[in-house]
C-alpha cells in the first residue's frame, strides 16, 4: 500500500508573525520556515505504517516555491521514500492545492493520503476535505488514532464534544490532529541519506490545473491590540477588582 503525504512549507510556529506596512500580507523575508506541524504528524504516521509493514512506500508532496524542496527533504529525512514537488511561485489556495493533489493521486494511486488538519499560516482547514470530495473518497478528519483494517480504516476523530470513531473505506483521506503521534527528529545519517532520495518536479500546467487564486485579498491588518492590564498583589485584590471594577463575578 502506498501512502501519499502532502507537506506544506509555512512560517515556523515559533516566529512572531508581522504584518507588512503596506497591508498586502505578512513579512516573509528572512523568516524561518518549517514544515507545517500537522504535516510532521502525517509523515510520522505514514512512516509508522511502513515500519509496521502496512505501507510499502511513503511519498511526500509539496506545492509551492522552489524552497518547498527543503520541506520535502525534511520528510525524506524522517523516512519518506521519495518526493514530488509542484513548483509554483504565487499564492495557492486550498481548492487549487486539492485539484493538483487529485491529479497527483490519479498518477500515484495511493490507498491513503494523510494531510494535516490545518495549515498554521492560512488556518483554512479545508484541503483534505476538498481532496476527498474531488476524488469521491471518504474522509476521516482530525484523527487521533488510525487502525488499518483490510479495505477499511477505523479512525478516532477529535470533535468538539470529545471523540468519535468512524470506519472509512479505502482508498481514503485522513487529516491529522495533534494527539495522533509525536513526530520523530531526523537523525544525522538519515539526513545524509535523504539527500540521495529522488524528488520529481512538475508544474501546475503538467497537472492540468489553473492555480490562480479565487479570493482577492483586499488587505491584511494587525488585529486590535489589548490595553495593558495591571498586576494585583494578592487573591483578595483580584477578587475585589473582578467584583467591583470589572463586574464580571
Amino acid at each position: 500500500m502506498k501512502v501519499l503525504v502532502p507537506v506544506k512549507r509555512v512560517i515556523d510556529y515559533n516566529v512572531k508573525v508581522r504584518v507588512k506596512a503596506d497591508q498586502t500580507g505578512v513579512e516573509l523575508a528572512n523568516v524561518k520556515m518549517s514544515m507545517n506541524p500537522f504535516d510532521e504528524i502525517s509523515v510520522e504516521e505514514a512512516i509508522r505504517l511502513k515500519e509496521a509493514g502496512t505501507a510499502t512506500e511513503v511519498v511526500a508532496v509539496s506545492l509551492g516555491v522552489q524552497q518547498c524542496q527543503e520541506t520535502i527533504r525534511t520528510a525524506l529525512a524522517m523516512g519518506a521514500d521519495r518526493g514530488i514537488h509542484v513548483l509554483h511561485d504565487g499564492d495557492l489556495e486550498p481548492l487549487a492545492v486539492a485539484k493538483m493533489l487529485k491529479a497527483v493521486v490519479e498518477k500515484e494511486q495511493p490507498q491513503l493520503v494523510i494531510l494535516g488538519k490545518q495549515a498554521i499560516d492560512d488556518d483554512a482547514n479545508q484541503t483534505g476535505q476538498m481532496l476527498a470530495a474531488l476524488l469521491g473518497w471518504g474522509q476521516a478528519t482530525f484523527a487521533s488514532k488510525i487502525e488499518m483494517g483490510s479495505g477499511e480504516a477505523k479512525v478516532t476523530r477529535e470533535i468538539d464534544g470529545g471523540l468519535e470513531t468512524i470506519s472509512v473505506k479505502l482508498p481514503a483521506i485522513v487529516t491529522t490532529d495533534l494527539r495522533l503521534n509525536e513526530p520523530r527528529y531526523a537523525s544525522l545519517p538519515n539526513i545524509m541519506k535523504a539527500k540521495k532520495k529522488p524528488i520529481d518536479q512538475m508544474t501546475p500546467a503538467d497537472l492540468g490545473v489553473d492555480p490562480a487564486p479565487r479570493l482577492q485579498t483586499l488587505k491584511v491588518e494587525e488585529p486590535a491590540k489589548r490595553e495593558a492590564g495591571v498586576k494585583v498583589a494578592d487573591v483578595a485584590e483580584l477578587v475585589s477588582k473582578l467584583r467591583n471594577e470589572a463586574k464580571v463575578i
Binding site: K16, V26, D123, R214, K219, V220, E221, P223
Partner: peptide, 18 residues
C-alpha cells in the same frame, strides 16, 4: 467581502469572493 483571522489571529485578512 469578509474578514478572517490568519496566522493564529496575528493578522486579519479582508477577502473578496467572486
Amino acid at each position: 467581502t469578509f474578514v478572517r483571522p490568519i496566522y493564529a489571529g496575528n493578522a486579519m485578512a479582508t477577502v473578496k469572493s467572486s
